[in-house]
Design a protein around this nucleic acid. Structure first.
Lengths: 214, 214
DNA sequence: AAAAGTTTAGGGTGCGCACCCTAGACGGGC
DNA sequence: GCCCGTCTAGGGTGCGCACCCTAAACTTTT
């Protein structure tokens, strides 16, 4: 891996743990096992580094937003795939999801595009849920799918913070990701066809075991 | 109002807007219309000031946690009262609710008590919802009330951030508070007796108009 | 082998910020 | 009038941090 990429990855991880402001360039250089001078060779300012992370964030979101329910596929599997991708994103860029509006100042791409991303995410989830309704796996009024999508997004997104504040560990392997996904299921599991509910639960449990690209 | 109290109130408001770290003591003094020296007369360190705000936070939560559904009262009114108190708290101490775990380092009371507060909040909401079930106003399985309470807490709590990120104004008078409360209603309004749903909606709308102690 | 790119080590700067210090002014209570 | 508490003004310090600089060493590419 190129040094520059290693720096961006380490920065993202440290920002997730401590927040952007609390991570010193000295600590970051040490984490990468490089000299601070080398950090400055690759990035002119700390803000440039933030923008590199933000660009990755944008790319990740753009790629995820391409996910669509397959018309000839399996709605449950497609939905699980989407939720898995979302959770991965929330974890990879946790500091940005913790207080995204505040980072808009540091990285213009975020400030400009956050609203559109959020709306597109709701629409994406809604499309997947609508597929479940079409397949007879979910009994939910069409008019209520948007609200369900929004609520699901909020629950998934803030789930890890929720467990963190309860004093529970939230890192990989702790079960927090699985619990977060299960929590979001409580929004609509009563309206799922029982076998579909079981399949979805199983699919999400498998996804929860996949470690993220640290 | 005593200067010390004015300082604490101004600090809380500025921390809500900018976060603790981004508020300089110089800016705070200016906001209070006092000299910086006077700020240091009242508080030895910035952290002492943080702790004063945190103490208020703790008191507010402890007082709110005393709210109980009145056995001889009206479940809907009691529930609205609780939700109103919660929303007020989320707004008064918005910065602490934005990233509460991170503030545990600055103010020990938060770090030590956050888990217990959160659990108590769930139980409180659950008790109020159970009352609605008992009164026949809400059709919800008793076993599902805890999940509903948790989800409601998360939605209410992060609702303002949600609108903020959509680029919508969230201050007093913008309708964001009302929309947040309505959003949480989408979790269970389909299970509310129709007249009860209308009454609750009306009660929450009235609460949303009450400005918070700036 | 030479050129280009990357990295190190070690010194440094400038700035922002929390906080200190001091003498004196002012206001309220006795 | 005295005492005490509160506040001001204006000067300051020390520290943490992002970032700079430079020569040399090392690695990769041509």
């Amino acid at each position: 891996m190129r040094t520059r990429d290693r720096i961006v990855a380490a920065a993202r991880a440290l920002f997730n743990e401590q927040g952007f402001g609390a991570v010193t360039t000295a600590a970051l250089a040490a984490q990468c096992g490089i000299s601070e001078g080398n950090l400055w060779y690759h990035f002119k300012t700390k803000r440039d580094l933030m923008e590199a992370v933000a660009d990755q964030f944008a790319e990740t979101i753009d790629a995820r937003l391409l996910l669509r329910p397959d018309p000839d596929g399996d709605g449950i599997a497609d939905y699980a795939r989407l939720i898995g991708a979302l959770m991965e994103e929330f974890r990879l860029f946790r500091f940005l999801y913790r207080d995204q509006a505040a980072y808009g100042e540091h990285a213009p791409v975020i400030g400009q595009r956050a609203p559109e991303w959020i709306e597109a995410t709701f629409a994406q989830i809604e499309a997947h849920l609508a597929r479940l309704v079409d397949e007879g796996q979910l009994a939910w009024p069409r008019a209520g799918l948007r609200d369900l999508s929004i609520n699901a997004t909020i629950i998934l997104r803030y789930g890890l913070e929720h467990y963190r504040e309860l004093g529970e560990p939230t890192g990989t392997g702790t079960g927090a990701v699985r619990r977060t996904m299960e929590r979001h299921l409580t929004l609509f599991q009563h309206a799922l066809e029982p076998a579909a509910a079981r399949r979805l639960r199983t699919a999400l449990a498998e996804i929860a075991e996949i470690p993220i690209a640290a």
